[in-house]
C-alpha cells in the first residue's frame, strides 16, 4: 500500500473539510473510531470503505479519497449509525453531505444512483410530484438497461399502481419557484 504523507494531505484537505463541517454541522473530530456505525450498518457488506473508515479519512483531511468512495453513495440513509453513535456524531448526515459535495466536485462513484436522483428531482420540478412510471422508464433507458424490472410493469398497470401519464399539480408554479429559489441561493440542482 502506498504510504500517505499526512502533513501534506492535511493541508490539502483543509478547504473541503471546512466545507463539509460547515454544511453538515458534524464535527468529525468527535468520532473515536469505535466502529459501532459499521457494526450495525445494513449496507456495510457492499461498501468499499466502512462508514468508520470514511470518518477516519475526514479526520485526517483525506477528503478526495472520502469523496471518491462508493460508500457515500451506498449509504441508505437509514440512520442506524447516527442513532447508536456513542459520541452523538451524525454519521448519516456526514455521508449525505459528502455525497452532495462529491457531486458538486464531479466525483460520482455511483453514476446510476446519481442519475436516478437527478431524474427524480426533474420529475418533481416539472410536475410537482414524482411520476413513478416515467421515472423508472427514464432511469432504465438512460441507465442502459431498458428491460430491468419491466416484468412488473403490466401487473402494476393492471393493479392501478402505475399511471401512464404524470399527474401535474395545479400549484401556480410554486414548486418550480422553490427549485428556482434554491438555485438562487447557490443550490446546484
Amino acid at each position: 500500500m502506498e504510504r500517505i504523507e499526512l502533513t501534506a494531505a492535511w493541508a490539502e484537505g483543509q478547504e473541503v473539510l471546512a466545507e463539509v463541517t460547515k454544511e453538515s454541522g458534524v464535527r468529525a473530530s468527535k468520532c473515536y473510531q469505535c466502529g459501532k456505525c459499521t457494526a450495525g450498518c445494513p449496507v456495510a457488506f457492499a461498501m468499499d470503505k466502512t462508514p468508520r473508515e470514511i470518518m477516519r479519512l475526514v479526520q485526517l483531511g483525506l477528503m478526495d479519497e472520502a469523496l471518491q468512495s462508493q460508500t457515500i453513495w451506498l449509504c441508505a440513509s437509514c440512520d442506524t449509525c447516527s442513532t447508536r453513535c456513542p459520541r452523538e456524531v451524525d454519521i448519516a448526515r456526514m455521508m449525505e453531505t459528502l455525497r452532495i459535495i462529491a457531486k458538486r466536485k464531479g466525483f460520482v462513484a455511483e453514476k446510476k444512483m446519481d442519475l436516478f436522483h437527478d431524474l427524480f428531482l426533474k420529475s418533481v420540478e416539472k410536475n410537482g410530484r414524482v411520476h413513478e412510471l416515467g421515472l423508472i422508464l427514464g432511469f432504465n433507458i438512460y441507465g442502459m438497461q431498458p428491460l430491468k424490472d419491466a416484468h412488473f410493469g403490466p401487473s402494476m398497470l393492471l393493479k392501478g399502481k402505475l399511471s401512464p401519464l404524470p399527474h401535474t399539480i395545479k400549484d401556480n408554479g410554486e414548486v418550480k419557484k422553490i427549485f428556482a429559489n434554491v438555485r438562487k441561493r447557490g443550490g446546484k440542482l
Binding site: 466502529g35 457494526a39 466502512t50 468508520r52
Partner: peptide, 10 residues
C-alpha cells in the same frame, strides 16, 4: 454484530 476496526470489516 461488531466491526473489527483493525481489519476494517463488519
Amino acid at each position: 454484530w461488531g466491526e473489527d476496526t483493525l481489519l476494517g470489516r463488519p
